[in-house]
């Protein structure tokens, strides 16, 4: 019979944090590309792409910030649960 396979809170917390960080890294790469493309278009005289680029960059920053809050919360929960034991 399989025993309780649930991972300890610390391991689960680290996995969640690693996942959130991977997402942030991917979003950051897209943001860097977006910035360089918007700059290239601006220097090339095409100014119409600046607004959508800024909107999408802002959205990606908000998602990153949300993920940061998630990481902070998971971190705190794990710390509290380990100190309670």
């Amino acid at each position: 019979m399989p025993e309780n396979l649930e991972l300890p809170p610390k391991t689960r917390g680290l996995t969640a944090i690693a996942g959130a960080m991977s997402l942030i890294a991917v979003l950051l790469i897209v943001q860097i590309w977006l910035l360089s493309a918007a700059l290239e278009a601006f220097l090339g005289g095409k100014r119409s792409s600046a607004l959508p680029a800024a909107i999408f960059s802002g959205l990606m920053f908000l998602v990153c910030f949300g993920l940061y809050l998630f990481v902070d919360r998971v971190d705190l929960d794990v710390r509290n649960s380990s100190s309670e034991r």
Binding site: L34, L35, S57, F61
Partner: peptide, 30 residues
Amino acid sequence: RYVTRRQLTKFLVLTSLGMFVGNLWILVRS
């Protein structure tokens, strides 16, 4: 491990904010 991960996450989010500010600057210039 938690501390370093949290600090790295903070740094990444600040970098993301920097990218957003850069895009805003281009928008203002446009």
